[in-house]
Design a protein around this nucleic acid. Structure first.
Lengths: 224, 224
DNA sequence: CGGGATATTGACTCTTATCAATGCCCGTGG
DNA sequence: CCACGGGCATTGATAAGAGTCAATATCCCG
């Protein structure tokens, strides 16, 4: 039985605003705990013991890596349906934070990798999502290693387009600072590139968070 | 029966110098084909149909992504024992090339992700290596997004140290051009950073491919 | 010994970072 | 309802780091 008062070992109970027991199975593997996190709340920290994988129900989550001097790289933004938090060892190598209020389900993991006791279906979903994540990260390596600032922002908007808002109207969940740390730029450069895309007639800025894509083809050509 | 003359569907037979049937099982899953590739030979191309995963027996393999104008990003160097080539769909999203003459075993894949018919052990090894690959790629994102040239080269040497040559004497398999495309720099900058590390007394260059690490602690501090 | 590929070094340019000032949006309280 | 304040975003001026172009230098292989 898992309750608010018996959550020893449950991830970050102190940081979340709501806990609800979700489901339990005999195997104890698909035991999922629904968790809610406020904007900017930490779901787990880099270096912390892992032990759960998380599936997003609603909201947006960012995965971050930090250098000792505070420089930050966001490795991914995750949206509803996506899984994050699986590690190759017992430690988280990124931190995870809610960009906007987020609901996630935490699944006890019990050494999926290496154990024979996992339901094949669960392992396959993990593999599928991990391979997808690897592909995304490789694409992002190309962006960070070889694209200029304008190409990076264009690519970012194209990536967000199908994932947010309605057709060609983006409702960005994250502030400029997060975009900058995702694209390996400064907020000033991100701002200037937004202005440049606007001047070229490629986008319209309804507000800093609401972006209309006016010329999809041009944006695509521009993303290199 | 799989032979030289009946290899339709076998990966890149034309590009390799040696094919040997390796093993066959009733399931047809662990049917591995040993392949050999010359230096710079392409194992598969970006956009090509996938269908095999590859395990390295000997040599070094690079995974590359290209932009239309030829800019290149190397996403990983793979060493013996490592698996590469698994994709989330039916298409390769990187190309794979031998950095030095390489022997690999190609395993028919038959939709590991999504199929119920895979041996659990094989799926778990794939998951394990994929999670490891994802972690490495995330670390590399931090390098490309937030580290300066000197930090990148220091980190590269530290990454290669345990994987090549004997204790603190690196035998780099790849030319400067590959290092540059891995670190998101130009060959000139890579060269200058080698010179800088040398001037600081952190390394000694026996030749451009043979690097002695003289001060491990300094190198670590420098990699940020 | 010669020659092509690879690597280094130098001079200069250009993109992006940095530093600083201003503007904007929104919530709060007078 | 409007003024104030704080966080976030934009814009400008300048600087720094890496890129580009070009000239050697070195290594490896025949």
């Amino acid at each position: 039985m898992l309750t608010q008062t018996a959550v020893a070992g449950t991830p970050n109970v102190d940081r979340q605003f709501n806990v609800t027991r979700k489901s339990e199975t005999a195997e104890g593997v698909h035991l999922g705990v629904a968790l809610g996190f406020e904007r900017n709340a930490e779901i787990y920290a880099e270096g912390e013991d892992s032990g759960y994988v998380y599936k997003i129900v609603s909201g947006v989550v960012r995965l971050c890596k930090l250098l000792p001097d505070g420089r930050r790289q966001i490795t991914a933004f995750h949206m509803p349906g996506e899984i994050f938090g699986l590690e190759s060892d017992e430690i988280h190598h990124t931190s995870a934070e809610a960009v906007v209020p987020a609901k996630v389900i935490a699944y006890r993991w019990e050494g999926v990798v290496g154990s024979e006791m996992q339901p094949a279906k669960f392992v396959r979903e993990l593999l599928s999502q991990t391979v997808r994540g690897l592909r995304h990260t490789q694409d992002h390596l190309l962006l960070l290693g070889r694209k200029n600032a304008l190409e990076r922002l264009a690519a970012f908007l194209l990536e967000m387009d199908p994932r947010t808002g309605s057709k060609h109207v983006l409702n960005l969940a994250m502030p400029r600072h997060d975009i900058a740390d995702y694209l390996g730029l400064t907020i000033e450069t991100v701002s200037r590139m937004f202005a440049e895309l606007k001047d070229m007639g490629t986008i319209k800025l309804e507000s800093s968070r609401r972006v209309h894509i006016l010329d999809m083809a041009k944006l695509r050509a521009m993303s290199a």
